[in-house]
Amino acid sequence: MATETKAPASTTERTRSERTRRLLIHVGLIGFGLIMLYPLLWMLSSSFKPTAEIFREPGLIPWSFTPGNYTEGWNALQYPFHHYLLNSAIVVAGAIIGNLIGCSMAAYAFARLEFRGKRLFFAIMLATIMLPIHVVIVPQYILFAQLDWINTFYPLIIPKLLATDGFFIFLMVQFIRGLPRDLDEAARIDGCGHVRIFCRIPLPLSMPALATTAIFTFIWTWNDFFSQLIFLTSPDMYTVPVALRTFVDSSSQTSWGPLFAMSVVALGPVFGFFLAGQRYLVKGIATTGIK
């Protein structure tokens, strides 16, 4: 790389030094990026190494290629790994649908309707964004235990349907406020009720905000460990993060090859969504500021 840009010598001194400066910046940025990503790349490569080699080989090439880690890891726990993947998929799908419905309804009210207590409720909603789950987890657990919901997916899905992720309400409120009101007004004059207006105008026009919500909900719920650890208590209900954790615990002599293989499987969907939804992710953080 370095030799490539040194070649054109016919340019003036000034642009040449400018080029060298730019080249140095790129070399620095690429080098730093590689250091950042090295652990991830190394985990991917190590998931194809025999466990003993993981502890000897800091390089990225799996010399004795071992795809068997994946089959071994897949069947290492009480249930095959696709059982946990399916559980995670159910929880994530429920959470996404819940957030899309619950938060968009609340957002429509805050962005478009006038009602008594609007300012107060909006302030309360903003405050709940900052509320740590650890502060409310004990009474939630007691409530769900009384409903006999422990070890079901309800505690992970129903709160989303009840629009408890204020962050997404805020995101959609900001978005809907940016939409022109004329269409709503026209529909109202044509005699549409609020429900039809909501379904026909702000909702379809808010696709970018809904997509951002879906992607963030996917990634956060897929990675979420704390509430899944607390509410899912038996192995047949375990999701991927909780299952991975038992993997670490179950063997005192951890078999890192299969464990890495399953970790790669666990990260795969997040990485996929990241690639597919980058545009929404970057915009989502830039406008609202939460990772």
């Binding site: 619950g102 309804m105 309707l113 009602f115 987890i137 009474p139 709160p159 009840l162 009720g193």
Partner: peptide, 26 residues
């Protein structure tokens, strides 16, 4: 609009009572 707004906010109110503010006080 009050009525319609409270309708749209119904899930959020339930969430406030049972999932966020309610448990906070509890």
């Amino acid at each position: 609009e009050n009525l319609a707004a409270y309708g749209f906010l119904a899930p959020w109110f339930l969430g406030l009572v049972f999932i966020t503010a309610g448990p906070l006080l509890a």
